[in-house]
Design a binder for these strands. Structure first.
Lengths: 268, 268
DNA sequence: CAGTGGTCTAGACCACACT
DNA sequence: GTGTGGTCTAGACCACTGC
């Protein structure tokens, strides 16, 4: 099988040329390596929930057989998906679909750290849902979520406390479509990360996010909920979280107290 | 050469066992893959400046011959170094030592973005050096830089403006040892990123950094330098930058205006 | 023990850049 | 054309997990 591409896979290699059709290739067919095609196929299966968060995907040998490529090619595809945190490899056990329902990745998207110690040392975060209502997307919200203004959205306001101290005030906007039936009860009572609940109850898995950070002054209502003086500057963290396919599924505006905590970022 | 480890490389594989010494291995010898050892060797050459920033390193075949391993093993070592942004691969040309002296990575460590558009569209940043003096490390500074309190440090205060608007006020602390002879003139007049100057003039290459971000109020002097009202909340960005070997080589405290810009971060 | 991912090798061929 | 990195294959063996 020394480079005899599987006929079921798109042969994008210029090597084969277009002689069969008698038409010489004008535009180079945008060469795409085999392992990228395999990666895309695996990604499709993930989107289609053929394998669910936490479950094992087929072994490298099985996938190699399925796609009619060598184990090494499957390996490279999986390597990239693991680097993107979509899959998790565990030697001797298998390769698993990444999930937010795990202790050690509890706060994967939360970059706030206590000035001393670790978030885990402050015990589990207490969540207090202040508000949870159906509403309609403003122009701002619609743009961020890829909706049209006026489309139904779910809006949640909550306070997160660490060690009993209110530290984060968050407003969430979720597309009404995908999160039909979400209740305040559910937001408040679910044990574990909110994104884990989204996976379990709504089949929505967040894979990446973008944050814009600013320093702001709180308004009166915000200061009250956080129990801080209105003059204390706060960190404004605006996050858009995406599922597979770069589809935005959540807009979140957080206000962080940074007198005892800080937002930590590693650059490389 | 089907797994006959080169004798010049540490054979950490348990396969060889300790029979030669007659002493059975008690503690497993911390198995380390060959490619990790190669990676460490390449890293040593980088630290020793055997190849300088911007230069090409030997080809994969040459390195494979030098270390007596297969090309694939060298490849995997280089892959990881490239993923860490220590090397840059360019197909058809070679593999190069990463450098800050390049247009498209101009602002690799600067996450501040204008709310509309791109930093590059605002033209080159104007740097105004407010102060540049030799001093002694305070306890804080010493801890961050891995020095002892009282050790000589270089201290720089400067203002960065984009499109003529003062946007960042920065204080830098540099180990006096490594940056002997750095002048205010040099800080102000060098064309290009400051980290590029560090590479060229002092042989110090920054490879990663950690930032702690808070919302703060400016004091009077700071507000004056940034030309803002004292009540405007600002982003405090405290950065420690590291060279090879996780050696801290710079402490930087920045105050960012976030009324027209924001700190951008991608999570995954 | 069998099955999984992880490492290492060797060789072929492709895409790209320079000359 | 030559030399570089990039892809793909095939096969061997190692390390880890759980039966």
């Amino acid at each position: 099988m020394a480079h005899t591409p599987n006929p079921t896979l798109t042969d994008l290699s210029p090597a084969g040329d277009g002689a069969a059709s008698g038409v010489p290739t004008q535009l180079p067919p945008a060469f795409s390596p085999l392992y990228q095609q395999i990666k895309a196929l695996i990604l499709q299966s993930l989107q289609a929930a053929e394998w669910k968060p936490g479950e094992a995907i087929p072994s490298e040998m099985e996938l190699a057989a399925r796609y009619r490529v060598s184990q090494g090619t499957v390996r490279k595809a999986i390597d990239e998906l693991a680097a993107d945190n979509l899959l998790v490899r565990r030697q001797g056990k298998g390769t698993f679909v990444a999930t937010h329902s795990e202790q050690h990745v509890q706060y994967r998207f939360l970059k706030l750290m206590p000035d001393k110690g670790d978030l885990d040392q402050e015990g589990p975060a207490q969540r207090q849902v202040v508000d949870c209502k159906r509403s309609r997307a403003s122009a701002d919200v619609a743009r961020a979520l890829g909706l049209r203004a006026g489309d139904p959205v779910l809006q949640v306001r909550r306070v997160l406390s660490f060690g009993g101290v209110p530290t984060i005030l968050e407003d969430l906007w979720l597309p009404g479509q995908a999160f039909k039936g979400l209740t305040a009860e559910q937001m408040a009572s679910y044990q574990g990360p909110t994104y884990a609940m989204f996976e379990v109850d709504f089949g929505v898995r967040m894979v990446r996010a973008e944050e814009k950070i600013r320093a702001v002054n709180a308004d009166a209502a915000q200061a009250l909920l956080l129990g801080v003086d209105g003059a204390m500057p706060l960190l404004s963290v605006e996050r858009v979280a995406y599922t597979y396919n770069d589809t935005p599924m959540e807009l979140r505006r957080g206000l962080y107290r940074t007198d005892t905590h800080h937002y930590r970022n590693d650059l490389s």
